[in-house]
C-alpha cells in the first residue's frame, strides 16, 4: 500500500470516522480496502455520490462521523444535495481523486475535472488541493479538524500528479 493511503487512513482512525461512503475509484481502491477491513468502520458503497451527502447527514444526526470518497466527476452529482449540508450546517468530509487534469486520456473527464474545485467553492465548501503525496496526511488532518470541530464542509482534492496517469492497460 502506498504511504499516503496509510497517512489518510490514520487520520480517519484518529478522528473516529465510522461511516465510509464511496463510489469506487482506482485512486481510492487501497483506502477503500483498508477501511473495509477495519472493524470500527462501516463501508457503504453508493449508486451515486449524492447519496453519500445525504447518508452522512443522517450519520451525523445519529452521532456517527463519516467520510465520502469519490472521483472528481462525482462532485457534479452532489451539487444540489450540498444544500442539505449548508442549510443544516452538517459536517462533511470528502476525499476526491482528480481526473481530467494532468495526463488525462479521456476527454469526457475534463469538463468536471477542470471545474471540480470551482464548483466546490461555489457551494461554500473548503478545498485543499494537494499535488504532493507527502502533504496528503497533513491536509486531510487539517480538513478533518475543520469538519468535525466546526462543523464545516471540506474536500481534499488528490491530484492526478499523485495518482498517476490512468490508461486502459492498468
Amino acid at each position: 500500500m502506498t504511504l499516503w493511503t496509510n497517512d489518510i487512513f490514520q487520520v480517519l482512525v484518529n478522528h473516529h470516522v465510522r461511516q465510509v461512503a464511496y463510489v469506487p475509484d482506482a485512486g481510492h481502491s487501497h483506502l477503500i480496502n483498508r477501511c473495509g477491513q477495519y472493524g470500527e468502520m462501516v463501508s457503504v458503497p453508493l449508486t451515486t455520490e449524492e447519496e453519500g451527502i445525504a447518508l452522512l447527514a443522517g450519520a451525523w444526526l445519529g452521532g456517527d462521523r463519516g467520510v465520502l470518497l469519490m472521483q472528481s466527476s462525482g462532485v457534479g452529482n452532489c451539487l444540489n444535495m450540498f444544500s442539505l449540508t449548508r442549510t443544516c450546517s452538517m459536517p462533511l468530509l470528502m476525499l476526491v481523486t482528480m481526473r481530467g487534469e494532468c495526463g488525462e486520456f479521456n476527454p469526457w473527464q475534463v469538463p468536471m475535472g477542470q471545474n471540480t474545485e470551482k464548483l466546490l467553492k461555489a457551494a461554500d465548501i473548503v478545498t485543499f488541493y494537494v499535488d504532493k503525496s507527502n502533504r496528503l496526511g497533513e491536509s486531510t488532518e487539517a480538513a478533518a479538524r475543520m469538519v468535525f470541530e466546526g462543523p464545516a464542509a471540506a474536500a481534499v482534492l488528490i491530484s492526478q500528479r499523485i495518482l498517476g496517469k490512468k490508461t486502459f492497460m492498468e
Binding site: 465510522r18 461511516q19 462501516v42 457503504v44 449524492e50 447519496e51 453519500g52 451527502i53 445525504a54 447518508l55 452522512l56 447527514a57 443522517g58 450519520a59 451525523w60 444526526l61 445519529g62 452521532g63 456517527d64 463519516g66 444535495m81 442539505l84
Partner: peptide, 14 residues
C-alpha cells in the same frame, strides 16, 4: 431524493 439515504445513515448510527 435523499430521504432514504438520510434514514440509512441514521439507521447505521443508531
Amino acid at each position: 431524493g435523499g430521504a432514504v439515504s438520510i434514514g440509512l445513515g441514521l439507521a447505521i448510527a443508531q
